[in-house]
Computed example of a mutant assay.
Amino acid sequence: MTVRVLIADDQQLVRAGLRVLLDTQPDIEVIAEAADGAEAIALARSLRPDVCLLDIRMPGTDGLEATRAIAGPDVAEPIPVVVITTFDLDEYVYAALRAGARGFLLKDAGAAMLADAVHAAARGDALIAPNVTVRLIEAFAGTEPASGTAAPPLEPLTARERDVLAAVARGLGNTEIAGELHISLSTVKTHVASLMTKLDARNRVELAIWALGAAHRRD
């Protein structure tokens, strides 16, 4: 199935660059571009793309406000949003996730990570830039007592699932995990989906947090 994407960024060159990266993917189609948040909201509501790729800093209605209008908790029929920005600031990460974003990437993420984030959002999953994921986990760890525990999995994990879980906890994307473990990308996706089911996790951040809690329990 082709994933239909709306791109919103106030810089035309950035929009063009993102379009080029996404157009290299056989199952992703950019159906529209917006120059600000207000235009992104209008196009999202009229075209109903599968995923919206939004910059944070835009004139007028910014990406955070647009995310709340497109994917926020009060939206009757939300559309998945991936926020992409030049600015690696924690307040942007937290604000974007609170607004309803299903992913958070930096603009230098590259074609593979960008495609992974779009596919994850279209599936109802979430993908966050690896360095950002690590910071979220560290922030979580800082709020947990040393004796923090993780609930047992609903079903036992296989050895390969434990390998994939450890890689997710380090902030690696699916493509990087496939290369490191010498397995196919589709196999990685299958393991990640299985881990989410067994650990009752909604996204990769929750998988990483579970791994952290399990490590505390072993200690």
Rank of each mutant, 00 (worst) to 15 (best):
A146K: 14
W210H: 13
L64P: 03
H191D: 05
L136R: 08
I79L: 09
D23M: 12
A129V: 08
A40N: 07
T24D: 15
A151V: 10
P78L: 12
E77W: 07
L114G: 09
L114N: 02
D74R: 14
T197Y: 07
V81H: 00
A139P: 01
M113F: 02
R217Y: 03
T61Q: 14
E180A: 11
E33R: 14
T143I: 05
D108G: 10
E39V: 10
P59A: 04
Y94F: 11
G63W: 01
I209L: 12
P80C: 05
A16R: 15
P145L: 11
V168R: 13
D50V: 13
I41W: 06
E91W: 08
G72S: 07
A71L: 01
A117D: 02
T133K: 13
P152R: 13
V51C: 08
K198A: 07
A126N: 11
E155F: 15
V168H: 01
A141F: 02
G124Q: 01
R15F: 08
L43S: 01
P80E: 04
L127T: 04
L172N: 10
D116V: 02
H216Q: 08
T197F: 12
G72H: 10
A120Y: 09
A122Q: 06
A201S: 09
R204D: 02
M1A: 10
P59S: 03
R135K: 09
R102C: 10
A126R: 15
A208M: 02
R218L: 15
V83L: 14
E180M: 11
T158A: 04
P26G: 06
I137V: 15
H119N: 12
R19E: 06
R202F: 03
I28N: 07
D74A: 14
L165K: 11
G103P: 00
V93N: 01
A71N: 07
L97S: 00
R45K: 13
V164E: 02
M196V: 05
V82N: 02
R4K: 12
G60K: 09
I128A: 05
G124R: 12
K198H: 05
I31C: 00
M1R: 15
D62Q: 06
R19D: 11
R204F: 08
L89A: 13
S184I: 03
R45F: 01
D219G: 13
L18S: 03
I41D: 01
D125C: 03
A112T: 14
